[in-house]
Design a protein around this nucleic acid. Structure first.
Lengths: 149, 149
DNA sequence: CGTATGTCAGCTGTACTGACATGT
DNA sequence: CACATGTCAGTACAGCTGACATAC
């Protein structure tokens, strides 16, 4: 390592390039999957979060996913129109609306998880060893740390 | 595990979820960086490929990046307007046009690599250990294999 | 002729910003 | 009042499809 802020190791350059390529390709590939399930990646993300952490406001969801509240509102709106989530006014704060999974939304999450309709899950299961999956999980934790920095 | 094609290990489910979240976040974060350099992620991808593999037609580039040729044409057009690539008609085939890095494009790639203007390279350098970077590289190779499958 | 290459036009998904209404 | 929450409108980017021209 060097004190020079310009100095970069070969592994950093290589890793960055690999990440960029993989991210672009994975995103497109995942999009195909979601398309075929009549749901988008962002919407799926919101469903998973609501299922894991329980009801939240649009602002909370936006903060958690690190997007603007206007962007999150669009995703939530789409999910609401599909009947997968419901919004209830917060009695304690007239500005807030709590977003929660509807009965149908709960079902959707459960079914998707059980049958693993998701392409990526299937691929990780069928084309990787247990050790390789652990490597992926470790790398994602690292990258998430970087993205949050 | 099981012969049932529905059966999925916990690590596969977990890894898939982690990948999805990380991909979404990283993509946004990378986009910010590219914005500040007046170049987009897709364009950067094309430059890197031309630099690595030499001149190619729009169709070749599209196939390599796994996008439609119409999509790739848009990226190439933008790069051409910035003077980073040049197009020369293929003398042997009147339909084809070879895309190659211009002098300015070569410079651009070199400078970016040397000074590591890219946010991700910087982060991988400053916030990770060498071993962690090797983990990331290994995981990206795995994921790229999946995306191509 | 059919196929390959490339262009143009229009659509979608996902994010962004700015302006605004409303409630605390 | 400032601040938080949410909506609406407009923009950008990167993919897509369909229709078309041209060259092999």
């Amino acid at each position: 390592m060097s004190a020079n802020s310009q100095a970069v190791s070969a592994s950093a350059v290589r890793a960055a390039e690999d990440v960029r390529v993989a991210v672009t390709r994975l995103r497109r590939r995942m999009k195909e999957t979601y398309d075929s399930q009549q749901i988008t990646a962002s919407q799926s993300s919101v469903l998973a979060r609501l299922n894991r952490d329980g009801p939240a406001s649009v602002g909370d969801l936006a903060a958690a996913e690190r997007v603007r509240h206007q962007s999150m509102a669009a995703s939530v709106k789409a999910l609401e129109e599909r009947g997968l989530v419901v919004r209830t006014p917060d009695p304690a704060d007239g500005r807030r609306q709590l977003v929660s999974l509807s009965e149908q939304g709960e079902q959707f999450v459960l079914v998707r998880r059980r049958v693993s309709g998701e392409w990526l899950t299937r691929a990780l299961q069928d084309l990787c060893t247990e050790e390789e999956r652990r490597t992926v999980i470790a790398a994602m934790a690292l990258l998430d740390r970087l993205a949050r920095s």
